[in-house]
Amino acid sequence: MATRTQFNADQWVRREIVTAEMDWLGDELCRRTGRPRTAAGSKGDYLHLSGAHRSQEFIMQSQLCTNRAYTKQTGLTPDQLRHVAGFDFTPGNTEAMIAQSQRLLAAMKAGLLDEVLEIFCNVDGNNVVDGWDNVRNLAATADSSHLWHWHLSLDRRYCADRALMARIIAIALGDDIRPPASAQRQHGRWIIDD
């Protein structure tokens, strides 16, 4: 386990990028729900030494990394290698947590969030973390902190996709996100024919 001093001195931590779009996702979710900005986050602290709350560059290069395989992707640009791909949101009460978790998990399973690799959440208020691995199309689970906040791991190629961030907000908050009748899915994305 790294100390705060070791973590803060790590060159790969300092190179990580939280995209403007990921920041906007946090800003907008907090604004629309009346939550403080600290209710949303992307970049992990010194206790997050692997996974989507770290850049892939950190995962591949830092001596502090504890798992070099988890959330690793191929075919990324140099900027995408530096993107932090994890997003957490704490709704603030059980009712909102359950409702947002149910909508996000259902959307993942329905193919409406193919750019999201995994979700951890709580859909029924019990003591079991619910989740979905979109890569393997399997149920998933994580540590108990996800009973009170939901987590998304994004495909690093989409961390700068503002339309994806708007779709995540719409789904989480229950806005109507059905595609128009003329839309078709190609390569996991909706294509609108005019």
Rank of each mutant, 00 (worst) to 15 (best):
E21L: 01
R162T: 07
S144E: 12
A142V: 03
M97S: 05
H149C: 00
T33L: 11
S50A: 15
T71N: 14
I192M: 05
E57W: 05
D88N: 11
S42E: 04
A2F: 09
F58Q: 11
H53S: 15
D176A: 10
V116Q: 08
R31E: 15
P179K: 01
L64N: 06
G131S: 05
C159H: 04
Y158R: 00
K109L: 12
L25S: 06
T77Y: 01
I59V: 12
L25M: 05
D79F: 06
T71K: 09
Y158N: 01
L154R: 00
D130A: 08
R82D: 06
D45Y: 14
H151V: 01
P78C: 14
G174L: 06
L47T: 14
M97H: 10
A172R: 10
G188E: 08
L173P: 04
T33W: 03
A142N: 15
A20C: 01
D124F: 00
G51D: 11
N137C: 13
M108S: 10
Y46Q: 11
N127R: 14
A96S: 12
C65A: 15
L154T: 00
I191A: 09
Q186T: 07
G188V: 03
D193G: 10
D161S: 07
L49E: 08
E21Y: 07
F58T: 07
C159P: 00
L147C: 09
L154E: 05
S144R: 14
A183P: 11
L147S: 09
S145C: 13
D88S: 01
I119E: 02
M108A: 14
C121F: 07
H83F: 15
G75W: 00
T33S: 13
T33A: 09
W12K: 04
N67G: 07
D88K: 00
L47A: 10
Q6L: 15
C30S: 03
D10E: 08
R4S: 08
G188R: 02
W148Q: 11
M1A: 14
F58L: 05
A96Q: 13
R103L: 09
N126M: 02
A107G: 14
R37Q: 11
S144M: 12
R178C: 14
G188N: 09
D193M: 12
S55W: 09
Y46I: 02
F120R: 11
F87C: 08
S144D: 14
V13D: 02
G44K: 08
A40V: 04
L49W: 12
N93H: 10
R32N: 10
G86D: 04
W12D: 13
N126R: 01
Y158F: 14
D193T: 15
W12M: 01
S153P: 00
N137D: 09
F87M: 06
R32E: 14
D175H: 10
R185F: 12
L154I: 04
Q186Y: 07
G174C: 08
R167I: 02
A107E: 13
N137P: 05
